[in-house]
Design a protein around this nucleic acid. Sequence first.
DNA 1: TATGGCCTTGGAGTGCACTCCAAGCAAGCG
DNA 2: CGCTTGCTTGGAGTGCACTCCAAGGCCATA
Lengths: 159, 159
Amino acid sequence: MQTTPAATEHDPNPADICSAPPRRHPRPDGQDSYTISEVVAFTGLTAHTLRWYERIGLMPHIDRSHTGQRRYSNRDLGFLDFVTKLRLTGMPVADMVRYAELVREGDHTFGERQELLESTRRDVLTRIAELRDTLAVLDRKISFYADGVREYEREHAGC
Amino acid sequence: MQTTPAATEHDPNPADICSAPPRRHPRPDGQDSYTISEVVAFTGLTAHTLRWYERIGLMPHIDRSHTGQRRYSNRDLGFLDFVTKLRLTGMPVADMVRYAELVREGDHTFGERQELLESTRRDVLTRIAELRDTLAVLDRKISFYADGVREYEREHAGC
DNA sequence: TATGGCCTTGGAGTGCACTCCAAGCAAGCG
DNA sequence: CGCTTGCTTGGAGTGCACTCCAAGGCCATA
């Protein structure tokens, strides 16, 4: 119980949940085989989630040690980084699985993959625009608060 | 069944689901009382969702007609627009309810509301930064595809 | 006056993305 | 040898944000 808490299967301490983002360890060089708990430390994902990603076909079948334990390669970690980025865009997991399938199907899916990435790119641009919009609204509201104008009057003004 | 489809309780035609965003009607001027189906047309939310927002205390109690039907005011619509923007930021509904409660509690919650808005603002900035990051990754990947470089080689390159 | 359309309610159901559980195996250590 | 630690599995459970249902009220038009 005194060992590195980040390496266990359990929840992070609830008290930490708001105070710190899941700090990601840098991955060591010159190695191409990581246990699941190392990957947990690198990516901030839980071991549950990593196994689940494999079950649903988002990850390819991960290499195993002679005792059957997962050994992630640098390539797997690269793919995980990519997946994590896509997740931030709000892309559904099912779509990411679709992309992963295309990768596994080989070169003849090139066009489809490119399309998928480009449509994702458009979505990201849209989301950024929406967020900017929201930011403008927030800034306006915040400046009203700073000026001491009542919420009531703001609401009433028709926006 | 031949009347305006947007005004019914049912799903939009599944065939339309990808083709068009829920187009929002402009709200007519000089009026301060709208039925739930009008609000559906203005906001793109479903009637279910509107009633649910009220049940959980996200919306204040909406005015009723003499027959007990909801009549939304322009102020309610303004609040709904704001809520819709907050939703886009990924803010949990529970937090929005908290904000709504603060508004209802009156002027002495000014400070807390301002803080909440400012922390939301920081979150939005963070999300925009993440999305930009993701955009850069996508652009890199897309340009590799455009150059005909194999996915395999990209993955292998260590990113 | 009867039909259709829009509205009401509480409660139950859905889909997504995890998240956890119980049972069990393998390795390292005293 | 026994204990602890870390890992394995399939399947069940959780939390969020809706989403739908059944039963019924009101009211305008045919």
